[in-house]
Computed example of a mutant assay.
Amino acid sequence: MIKEFLSFVRDHYSSDENDFIPLHAPVFRGNEIKYLTDTIESTFVSSVGAYVDKFEEQMKLLTGAKYAVATVNGTSALHISLHSLGISLGDEVITQALSFVATANAIKYTGAEPLFLDVDRDSMSLSPESVTDYLKNHCDYNNGHIINRKSGRRIKAIIPMHTFGNPGRIEELKEIADDFQLPIIEDAAESLGSFVKEQHTGTFGKLGIFSFNGNKTVTCGGGGAVVTDDENFGKRLKHITTTAKVSHAWEYAHDELGFNYRMPNLNAALACAQLEQLEGFLLEKRNLAGKYIQFFENKDENFKNEIANTRSNYWLNTIEFQNRSARDQFLKETNVAKVMTRPAWNLLSNLPMYQHCISDSLENSKYLADRLVNIPSGVRWKN
């Protein structure tokens, strides 16, 4: 299968065996240079500028959210979302161990602890069943507070992550969260352009965050965004991401703890040009995913397709091997052949700074971590 796969990938990207095929490289073929030049000529290259405002308007239009706040990266977007909800020392936040480290790091920045619960095997995202089981069978309830029986900490929020761009069961998770009066922050860092039915990911929870890192579907080098329908959160987030500075012609007055998290105008210019091309990017990526689905149809490896009632952006196409040994052999041979493939992240619960954190069995998470591989998924740069 590996030789067939290498041939398939090179037919799609480049037939030159000396060319390195990356996992997901950015493609700049729109107004990127024009908008960057405009920004430089305007001299507004930092956090004040027309393109930052334009980017926020584009994000509102794309996601359907009422408010969007531009940030320097997805991690800062997640941190400021947690901060705005009052998450702090002594609290716990439910999330998944199968995620990029930024998800747990942002929780720790507030002084809180992540509580790692299992994912579903098909969506690879936080399992509604796991969340329900933990809240019902491992927690006590005191004056409207949910207390983790094992740690004694108060559970304050839920952060599901849409893994590799594939939407999870966010509707079911929202029902559970509403029943237990827990806010959801959607980690939609990887799922720009992904939908559940007709609703964009990131808009089901109280807050949703996105990333525009160099390897994302749309990139501005480094950048993020928070979206919300809540007016109070929308206004406060913009205020505290600009150091909580009170508007004044010349004086420096700050009325609460603030963060220097606003996206620079240079990055926003790049983001605006990229967002203009998003529809085309998504069409190309869906076409590639369709070819992968056909390629793996009768093979031992399982292509991780979108689940029912969802539309994935297929940010990183993913396959599941029957065992770790087969996975490791595939990783070795493809990378030696200059075709980049990558295993899933090490489970966050295994990292030295999070080994002390509470988790459930993580049965599905462990199973997937041993078997998942991301394969080249970028927009084609050669015909």
Rank of each mutant, 00 (worst) to 15 (best):
E186L: 02
A244L: 11
F116A: 11
A177T: 00
R311K: 15
E175K: 08
K382N: 14
I94W: 01
V52P: 00
E172T: 10
I158C: 04
Y134W: 11
G223K: 05
L266H: 07
L207R: 01
S42T: 13
T241D: 05
E297C: 12
I159M: 06
R121W: 05
G258D: 09
L257Y: 10
Y35V: 10
D179M: 12
L115T: 03
R286N: 09
E231R: 09
K174I: 06
A25Q: 15
D328W: 11
G290C: 09
L23T: 09
I375P: 08
N213P: 01
H248T: 13
S151P: 13
A337C: 04
R153F: 10
D300S: 15
S325I: 14
A337M: 07
S15A: 06
F330P: 03
A102Y: 12
M1H: 05
S7R: 11
L115H: 08
H200W: 09
S349C: 14
L207V: 01
K235D: 08
N105V: 06
A157Y: 01
A249K: 13
P343Q: 01
T37V: 13
H83G: 04
V336R: 11
Q322I: 11
L368D: 02
Y35E: 00
I307C: 15
G208A: 05
Y109I: 14
G223H: 02
V218S: 03
A326F: 01
E175F: 09
F55N: 02
F303G: 13
S46H: 14
S42H: 11
N18W: 08
I293R: 14
Y354W: 10
P128C: 02
H200M: 05
I147R: 08
F295S: 03
H145K: 14
Q322S: 12
N298K: 15
N143D: 15
L266E: 11
A112I: 06
K285I: 10
A308R: 15
L278Q: 10
R29P: 00
F55Q: 02
N265Q: 12
G152L: 03
G290Y: 07
A106K: 01
D229C: 10
Q322M: 13
H12T: 06
V9R: 00
E32R: 11
H138V: 01
F281R: 14
S99M: 03
L278H: 08
D187P: 06
H200E: 05
I185S: 05
V93K: 02
V227W: 00
C357K: 03
R169Y: 07
G30W: 09
Q181V: 12
E171K: 10
R149P: 07
